[in-house]
Design a protein around this nucleic acid. Structure first.
Lengths: 336, 336
DNA sequence: ACCGGTTCGCGAACCGGTTCGCTAAGAGTA
DNA sequence: TACTCTTAGCGAACCGGTTCGCGAACCGGT
């Protein structure tokens, strides 16, 4: 069933059917009714492909997701879902592009073959080749997380630097002087993954400013790594009485590792995290944490990108979110 | 940059360029080289949209994901990632279609406007309107989870019935006679969500067959619900010494709830789960569990669908996976 | 020199929409 | 009645590819 068939059955031209559908020109009530009746009874819907070709826009957004072997976090999952729903609300669809081993195949295809009108890039690095490519080609996009060249494109980001200094401040206010940071995996830090990088940086600054003794450690995204990390922390700084972690995936492992080495939370060691409430709440004690607002970020990203598509010369969106820490049961004054 | 421009620069016709690209007809070495040189230097890539229109296939697969408010599980996240990667390996793309409040908008658009060549349906119900729609329209698709009309379409499923009876059998073999099942939320059971339904059914059968005292309870997908569920179970059957759960999201809550009411695992109560290793391992004690093989399921689904697209009259794929239980620290013989 | 068979490039039609310019019919005015 | 203006439908061109039929050029054989 195509537009020509509808036109034939309604006894009008194809262009008239098109105008009935789009409303871009006036059509007399009589003809309009006749055409809509035919469309109704035949269940006709115009082909997205043909329209995309004619109009030069696909009404599809690309979402570049991190490779699976990074084991997407719950946050990222929520983010993907939120993006899909936000896009659907605007009658856009989401095309997934896994980056990965040969990441570029899918990414290049998406751009080169013009499958999408714009792109959302997840897990952005400070120096990100995908971002450079997009800028070079003048392709509309928004990143999750800032790059080094932050002013040249739209982004939505979580203020890791702010959260980390706020977190350290909270611990400092409780009297802690020996504080550890559990960061994301070394690999991400090496690749200059923004959150890992900015967290490390902010931690160092806060430590200097507040005249604390700080120890920062990277930790792979799993529970076994957390156990090793706890060992490393206390080996390097036995006096540590507070741990701040931005590594959600290893949070459970961190808490059990502390329990297993005989450190009570929060009597001996305070724990503060940046992690989803769902995750933090299922632990004992319930861990105080600032939540990654994945859903809000998803909606912001979609809306920023759509705004850019509507107004290519408009202002670039820079959205920096800073969710509050919520106190639960893992924080206490420094012992002794 | 389009195919006409390439043809002009290479001094050949558009059709010749097309044949160079597709290799569907012989082209003399001389002309082939000239054309590829021009393509190379101009960075030309054919438009996916135009090709889709001409060939009548989009080389895109639709993935219908559950609504966000169901809070996708880690498994489902992995599944989405695996699907995207498997599709990318075959140079297909994945279009997301969130089902949800007005699920039908995105789903109908995807089908009606022919944005995709085939569809993968997640979280299938025993009586699923999406499946009926797809069958009616003769649209190629594969479901994750069987429906009631299991023989009329391809599917990939986890053998929940088998896993539950195997699990009950294991507990029985350890001497347990009073066994509880923690199922997925009541809402899913009411809507006849396959895993919840089949698990409940298999549990009842196993209980009768082995002459056990069984109690089955639904549990919402969070930790608080797990606490309530534990209370309900012991209120109904104080003698329970073993719990089998297929509710991954509430597993952590289940374990802490047991600890909080003074039941030691596994000395007083054995726990057996169907859950990702990652999740089960981060608990104390480490929970014995059969793992949902999300990644394998994703690849199977994509490959089954692609096979169907290549051979519309070929056999339907029916893949039933049954991962092994792995023993960790949560199982013990019945006390006393 | 003629013939039948290959090889290979070209042009045109097609996929299913959108959009622009034209014009016939009808309305309004003098 | 003649003239202008507006309204609304039609046809054709276009988006950027693919595919089919045609025929020119070249081949070897007699």
């Amino acid at each position: 069933m195509n537009i020509g068939e509808i036109a034939r059955r309604a006894g009008v031209s194809r262009s008239t059917v098109s105008y009935v559908l789009s409303g871009k020109r006036q059509v007399s009530a009589e003809i309009r009714d006749r055409v809509t009746a035919v469309i109704e009874e035949s269940g006709y819907r115009p082909s997205a492909t043909a329209r995309a070709l004619a109009q030069g826009e696909t009404r599809t957004l690309g979402l570049v997701i991190p490779p699976m072997r990074h084991h997407l976090s719950v946050d990222q999952l929520h983010f993907v879902g939120a993006v899909a729903e936000a896009a659907a609300d605007h009658d856009y669809d989401i095309l997934l592009s896994p980056s990965g081993q040969d990441r570029d195949r899918a990414f290049e295809r998406m751009l080169g073959e013009r499958r999408v009108d714009g792109v959302i890039v997840m897990e952005t690095l400070l120096h990100d080749s995908r971002v450079s490519t997009l800028i070079e080609r003048g392709f509309p996009f928004v990143t999750i997380g800032r790059t080094g060249s932050g002013q040249e494109h739209g982004w939505v980001d979580l203020d890791y630097a702010g959260l980390v200094s706020e977190g350290v401040g909270k611990l400092h206010a409780l009297g802690h002087r020996d504080i550890a940071l559990v960061n994301r995996p070394q690999e991400l830090l090496d690749r200059e993954y923004g959150p890992a990088f900015r967290a490390a940086d902010a931690f160092d600054k806060a430590v200097v400013e507040l005249e604390l003794h700080g120890v920062a450690r990277c930790c792979d995204d799993d529970d076994d790594a957390a156990a090793a990390c706890v060992e490393a922390i206390f080996a390097a700084a036995p006096a540590v009485t507070a741990i701040l972690t931005i590594n959600e995936r290893s949070l459970a492992g961190l808490v059990t590792a502390l329990a297993e080495r005989g450190s009570r939370v929060p009597e001996d060691v305070s724990v503060l995290a940046i992690a989803s409430a769902r995750n933090a709440m299922s632990l004992r004690p319930k861990v105080s944490a600032a939540e990654v607002p994945a859903e809000r970020m998803g909606r912001h990203a979609v809306e920023a990108l759509l705004r850019r598509l509507a107004e290519p010369e408009g202002e670039l969106a820079h959205v920096l979110l800073s969710p509050p820490f919520v106190d639960r049961e893992s924080l206490a004054p420094r012992p002794g």
